[in-house]
Structure formats: structure tokens, C-alpha cells
Computed example of a mutant assay.
Amino acid sequence: MNNSQKTEEFYQRLKAQLEENFSWPSTYLYKFIVPSDQEKINTIKDIFADSGANLQTKESSKGTFTSVSVKVRMKSPDAVIEKYLEVSKVEGVISL
């Protein structure tokens, strides 16, 4: 199984869990770990810029990574996954 198939299966499971555990539209909390690079953090901020998101950042104790929490009202599981896919294009980002 290649990475593309694994990624597709992951998002299919996530969609099923989101459909089962949330009533849509719903508030969703994204959590990301990003290398402490302001350009990368700003890219994530830009992805959520027009969504009315509440975004918080916290730098690690050594300053090498920054956690980014984004609380935002989403319309559907597909909309949640769409944002994950956009953020996944930012190099070095880990989605939690």
C-alpha cells in the first residue's frame, strides 16, 4: 500500500468519525505542530483567514516548534478535511 492510499484511507476514517461524533455545522478544533518559522505559521493563518477562526499559537520551550490551535465553525466533515489537505501542503507541519 502506497502513501497515497494510506492518506486516502485515513481521511475516509476521519470523515466517518466526524459524521458520527458531530452535528453539522459544528465548531472544530484543529491542532498543528509547525517548525517555528513565521512564514509557515502565517501560511496556516492565511488558510483560515476568511473563516472567522480563533487561532492561538504557543512556542515550544526550546523555540524550535510552535503549536497552532484553530477553533472554527465548519459546515461539514468534507470542509474539515479540505482544510487539513490545504495545511498539509505546508512543509514540516504535523496535524494532530
Rank of each mutant, 00 (worst) to 15 (best):
V34K: 03
T57Y: 07
I94G: 13
Y11T: 01
E19L: 13
D50S: 15
V80K: 04
Q17A: 04
K71N: 15
G92S: 09
L29D: 14
N2S: 12
V72C: 07
S69T: 08
Q17W: 02
L55M: 08
K58D: 02
N54Y: 14
I33N: 02
K15M: 09
S60K: 02
P35C: 05
S4Q: 13
P35H: 05
L14S: 04
I47H: 10
S67K: 05
S23H: 13
D46F: 06
V80F: 10
L14F: 00
S76N: 13
E9Y: 13
S60D: 02
D78G: 15
K89M: 03
N21I: 00
N54W: 07
I41A: 01
T64A: 13
V68A: 00
S60C: 01
E8A: 14
E59M: 06
S4E: 12
N21C: 05
M1V: 05
K15D: 08
L29T: 13
D78E: 15
E39P: 01
M74K: 10
S26Q: 04
F22M: 14
V70C: 02
L18C: 14
V93R: 11
S23I: 12
D37A: 05
L55H: 04
S36Y: 05
V70L: 07
R73Q: 14
M1K: 09
F22Y: 15
P77H: 03
E91N: 06
F22E: 10
F22T: 10
P35L: 01
T7Y: 14
K75Y: 00
E39T: 06
N42L: 06
Y30N: 08
T64F: 03
K58W: 03
V72S: 07
P77T: 01
A49R: 12
T43V: 13
S88T: 04
T57F: 04
A53R: 03
F48K: 00
Q5N: 07
G52S: 03
I94H: 13
A53M: 11
F22H: 15
T57H: 01
E20F: 12
L85M: 14
E9G: 06
N3R: 12
K89D: 09
E86S: 12
T7A: 15
S36A: 09
Q17Y: 14
A16F: 08
S51I: 09
L14V: 04
R13K: 12
S51L: 15
T43S: 14
V72H: 11
T7L: 15
